[in-house]
Structures are given as structure tokens and as C-alpha cells.
Design a protein around this nucleic acid. Structure first.
Lengths: 198, 198
DNA sequence: ATGATAGTGAACATGGCGTCCGGCATCTTC
DNA sequence: GAAGATGCCGGACGCCATGTTCACTATCAT
């Protein structure tokens, strides 16, 4: 797939991806038209369609890159601190750091007018990671493993979205601590529950 | 707003809402065109645009009804079992029951090709409910209240989506138990339970 | 009965989508 | 390095959905 590709084609695809990213940051995914993309990338209309079936296809193909980058981030983070290896959910800190680095893109993708496709893709990538992390955890309760996986992924996206939209200035470590607290302990045990109704 | 409305206008709006719901179940929100809606509802094109600015507006207006219905469900559920009042997150069981009753609609709205708008609206409605429920809980940790709210809402939607897409045959009670377990205790400590859970 | 209010359906302008074809830059082969 | 093959380029075209307008008709209130 990533074989010797015509230099022209490579240049075109790179330009298209870059254009899409810029536009996502500028005006959000939904509002982007194919015309915008080819205009920004400065390529012909038919060229676009000879590479991708539409803007959705282009976006999806971009997530191949993201997947590789995340895997890389996981690897380097694992090497950096071995503590992360031991802890359950060791992936989260590296992920938060990666997300903070590409804040503007993640924000546009996850927030307000983002696309369902993007969120789903992110969910898929995260699910794979979490699945591996949870494979060593005992499963004695009545909660299926896939529910647990989706629960963790959902919580991560929740915290991440909140971070991107409300508190840009927190450090990844602080956010990670919140995330782990929520996922590992929930909201019940730590805070004393007095009465349900206020 | 809900004043004496011209019988004709009322009939039209009802027909449009019904048509939208049917179509959502049939082909999913995204694939619906205005033409589909007015065709299904058997009203003129200009009539549609005299009531709503587009299909998004029609959908949003439908959530006013949903909001009222949920409030009603909360009330009747609260009256039915007083245990739900005492427990934290007493809203969840009634919500799961409501969702199971309108399974096909929720599934089309939340699942695969659903709209961002619908999910956001559902999140908003749920956030209000959860906010009230959590108002009595102490907040001494480093986790802001709004994060906690979004965490609960996210977990609820996660479990609900999973229920709708994977396990249609579980009872609301069973699903509710799973949800509470996850939200209150998390996935970390294998058996640690502080609050008495059945 | 008579205005007033609301719905009807066809036609129109707009704009994005996806395709097609003539033209040309780049790669291969000798 | 020249000539043919490859395949990208870009403008033009048809299609479809959107949202608006207008002359006309049906229903409501007085």
C-alpha cells in the first residue's frame, strides 16, 4: 500500500490532508465542502475524486496516520516511564499529552460541530488500546468486558472533551489523575453520599 | 406558545413530527431529506418551511416533547418506588425503561448514523437531570462538579448505546445495575464496595 | 357573508456533488 | 535524450436537494 507511489500522487494526497486539517481547525468538519478542500489544496476537482470518494473518505484515511502516531506515542511513553506499564490504564497520560499537542485539531473534531465519523474513528482506535490494557484485569463481576471497554473509552472522551472546551490550562498529568480517579473508583465511594435529593 | 393553535397548523406540525420519527426509524436521520418528510407527512413544501427552518429545526422542536416526557417519566418513577429517591442516580432506571419502550427511535438517534444534534440534545436533557441528582453530593476532591456530571451522562449513554446495539434482551433493571456499578465504583478495585449495592 | 389566516403546489435560483473529457506533466523504455 | 505510455489536472456538465416566491384555495373568526 505504502509502496513506491507516484511523486505527483503523493504530493496531491499530502496537500489534501493538510488542507482538510487546516479547514477543520478553521471552520469545523461539517461546514467543509469538497470545493473548499480542493481550493485550499490547490488541486483539481477530478483529482480529488480520483483519490477519495468524498470528504468522509479523506477524513477516514487521515485516521490511518493518527493510528500510527498514537501507536508511536504509546511506545515512546511506555519507554519513558515504566510506572505507566504497571498501572492499569497506562495509556491515558500519553494520550492526553498527544491530544494537548494537537489541541486545535482534537477540539474541532470532538467539540460542538464535529463529525460523528471522527468521534467513531477515535473511539475505535481507543477501544483497541483499552482492550489490550484490560485484558489482564479479572472479570468476576456481571459486567461484560466490552461494556467495560466502552465505559473507559467514553470516560476518556468525556474528560478530554471537557479539557479541550473548558480548561485549556490544566496539565496533562492533572487531567489524567482526574480521569483515573473517575474510571477506577467512580464517584460513589470517595465522596460520602448523604442523601439523594437536595 | 402552546396556546390555542389553529387546528390546521396543529395537524400539520403533528404530521411532520410523526413523519420525521417514522423516517428516522426507517432510514436514519442523516439520510432524510426535506422532500422525504413532506412526502411522508403529505404537506406542501412551503408549508414545511413556514413552520420550521429545516429538518434540524424540526428535530430540535421534537426534543421539547421528549423533555416533557422524560420529566413525566421521572415523576411517575419517583412515585412508584421511593427507593429510587434515596439512592443516588435514582433517575437511571426510569430512563432505561423509557429508552427500552422507544427502543427503535433511540437506537436510530444514538447509533451509527445518528446525528450530532440528537446526541447533544439528549446530553443536555440528561445533564440537567444529573445535575440535580448530584447537587447533594459533597465535592471535596479535585474533580469539578461539571466533570462529574458529564462523566455520569457519558457513562449512561455508553451503557444505553451498548444495550440498544448489542443486547436487546436484557431487562432495564439488569442494565441499570451495571450502570450504577460502573459509575459509583468504577472498574478499579475488584470487589470494593462502600455503598450497599444489591 | 367577508376579510383574515394558513396551507398548496409549482416554479425558480442557488449551490454542492460526482463524472467526463481534452490537455499536459511526469515516468518508462530504448 | 526522444517517444510513447501513464495518469494527474482542471474546467464543464448534469443531477439533486435546498430554501424562496407567488398566485390560488381552504378554513377560521366575526
Amino acid at each position: 500500500m505504502t509502496q513506491v507511489m507516484d511523486r505527483r500522487a503523493a504530493r496531491t494526497q499530502k496537500a489534501l490532508h493538510g488542507a482538510l486539517m487546516s479547514l477543520i481547525v478553521c471552520k469545523g468538519y461539517e461546514a467543509i465542502t469538497v470545493q473548499d478542500i480542493i481550493d485550499e489544496a490547490d488541486v483539481g476537482r477530478s483529482t480529488f475524486y480520483s483519490h477519495y470518494t468524498g470528504k468522509e473518505d479523506l477524513l477516514r484515511s487521515g485516521f490511518q496516520t493518527l493510528r500510527a502516531e498514537l501507536a508511536e506515542a504509546q511506545r515512546t511513553a511506555g519507554a519513558k516511564s515504566e510506572a505507566a506499564q504497571d498501572e492499569p490504564l497506562g495509556f491515558s497520560l500519553a494520550m492526553f499529552e498527544h491530544a494537548c499537542e494537537y489541541r486545535h485539531i482534537y477540539k474541532a473534531l470532538l467539540g460542538g460541530r464535529g463529525s460523528v465519523i471522527a468521534v467513531n474513528e477515535i473511539r475505535r482506535v481507543l477501544s483497541e488500546i483499552v482492550k489490550k490494557e484490560l485484558s489482564g484485569v479479572r472479570e468476576d463481576k456481571a459486567i461484560p468486558q466490552d461494556v467495560r471497554i466502552q465505559f473507559v473509552v467514553g470516560a476518556f472522551i468525556t474528560v478530554l472533551t471537557w479539557l479541550l472546551e473548558r480548561r485549556p490550562r490544566l496539565t496533562p498529568s492533572q487531567v489524567d489523575a482526574m480521569f483515573r480517579r473517575l474510571v477506577l473508583n467512580g464517584i460513589g465511594p470517595s465522596g460520602r453520599v448523604t442523601s439523594g435529593q437536595g
